[in-house]
Computed example of a mutant assay.
Amino acid sequence: MKTLVSGEHIVKSFLIGNEQHPVLLDVSVAIAEGEFVSIMGPSGCGKSTLLYALSGMDSIDHGRVIFDGLDVTSLDDKELANLRRTRMGFVFQQPTFLKSLNILDNILLPAMRDQRKNVKALTERALQLMNKMEIEDLAKRDITQVSGGQLQRAGICRALINNPQMIFGDEPTGALNSTSAQAIMDILASINREGTTIMLVTHDPKIAARTERILFMCDGAIVSEMRLPKFVGSNVADRLAKVVATMREIGI
């Protein structure tokens, strides 16, 4: 399979007070087109920092990040913004929407800069996505008039509006109850089956067990990884047991 995004010897530290605190220690990783990958590890191990580095959301101190043959680390801020807006989608634990816009307009917002002349077509696409996420009846509601799970579905619609090559999710189910979390994973699995590459950060082994490759991190490094067959909906317990056993083996 073709590599879509790779990090080569990534080093990242943060300045806290007068001291540099290392977060990523010479991390190298490659994600192939069509993969469904999760990153697990204890708090502070660098998993979110790695996701931000690979998506160009955060700069790195050393190393390179390559996205579909493009050296992300060589891009300026404007070029990075264009890359993220047009070829990547992002889903966070707490979706950030503009309170002054309704759900539909918030979903449309990332596409309006580049496709302002195609508002009708964009609106049709947004409504199609909302229909797929089963929230089409919420289009005109304010963001305060929907549940957390519904808002996260709207966030996925927004992430998909520009038809990205890859979705990055930082704890996308972290603020949801178990039923809503599994519903969101069903949606992400469906998106992945259609060809979109997905990388998630999660602390929940139940969520990681739904993915096909798990990167385990500890102290700023990838210490192990696990590959699982494609999830078919009936082997949750076995997959979860394997994930938990690996976590115990490596002490996370």
Results as ranks from 00 to 15, higher is better:
177 N>F: 01
177 N>C: 06
177 N>S: 07
177 N>Q: 08
177 N>H: 08
178 S>T: 12
178 S>C: 05
179 T>S: 11
179 T>E: 09
179 T>G: 05
179 T>K: 15
179 T>C: 08
180 S>K: 12
180 S>E: 11
180 S>A: 15
181 A>K: 07
181 A>M: 04
181 A>P: 01
181 A>Y: 00
181 A>I: 03
182 Q>F: 15
182 Q>M: 15
182 Q>P: 11
183 A>H: 04
183 A>G: 02
184 I>S: 04
184 I>Y: 06
186 D>V: 07
187 I>T: 10
187 I>L: 05
188 L>G: 12
188 L>Y: 04
188 L>M: 13
188 L>D: 08
189 A>Y: 07
189 A>D: 14
190 S>R: 12
190 S>I: 14
190 S>V: 13
191 I>V: 15
191 I>F: 09
191 I>G: 02
191 I>D: 01
191 I>N: 03
192 N>M: 07
192 N>P: 10
192 N>I: 13
192 N>A: 08
192 N>H: 07
192 N>C: 10
193 R>M: 15
193 R>Q: 15
194 E>A: 09
194 E>S: 12
194 E>G: 05
194 E>F: 14
194 E>N: 07
196 T>Q: 11
196 T>C: 14
196 T>D: 09
196 T>H: 14
196 T>N: 08
197 T>F: 15
198 I>T: 04
198 I>S: 07
198 I>F: 02
198 I>K: 02
199 M>F: 08
199 M>G: 01
200 L>M: 12
200 L>E: 09
200 L>R: 11
200 L>G: 10
201 V>E: 06
201 V>T: 00
201 V>M: 12
201 V>I: 13
202 T>N: 01
202 T>V: 04
202 T>F: 02
202 T>M: 00
202 T>E: 10
203 H>E: 13
203 H>T: 12
204 D>C: 08
204 D>V: 02
204 D>F: 05
204 D>W: 05
204 D>T: 05
205 P>D: 07
205 P>C: 02
206 K>T: 09
206 K>L: 05
207 I>W: 00
207 I>P: 09
207 I>C: 01
208 A>N: 03
209 A>R: 07
209 A>Y: 02
209 A>G: 06
209 A>F: 05
209 A>N: 00
210 R>I: 04
210 R>A: 03
210 R>L: 06
210 R>W: 10
211 T>Q: 04
211 T>R: 00
211 T>W: 04
211 T>Y: 05
212 E>W: 01
212 E>K: 06
212 E>I: 06
213 R>I: 02
213 R>A: 02
213 R>V: 03
214 I>H: 10
214 I>M: 09
215 L>K: 04
215 L>T: 03
215 L>E: 08
215 L>S: 06
216 F>K: 05
216 F>H: 08
216 F>T: 03
216 F>E: 07
216 F>P: 13
216 F>C: 13
217 M>H: 06
217 M>P: 01
217 M>Q: 01
217 M>N: 00
218 C>N: 09
218 C>G: 05
218 C>D: 09
219 D>L: 07
219 D>E: 14
219 D>K: 14
219 D>H: 15
219 D>I: 08
220 G>N: 03
220 G>M: 04
220 G>H: 03
221 A>V: 12
221 A>W: 03
221 A>Y: 00
221 A>D: 06
222 I>A: 01
222 I>F: 01
222 I>T: 02
223 V>Y: 01
223 V>I: 14
223 V>D: 03
223 V>K: 11
223 V>P: 08
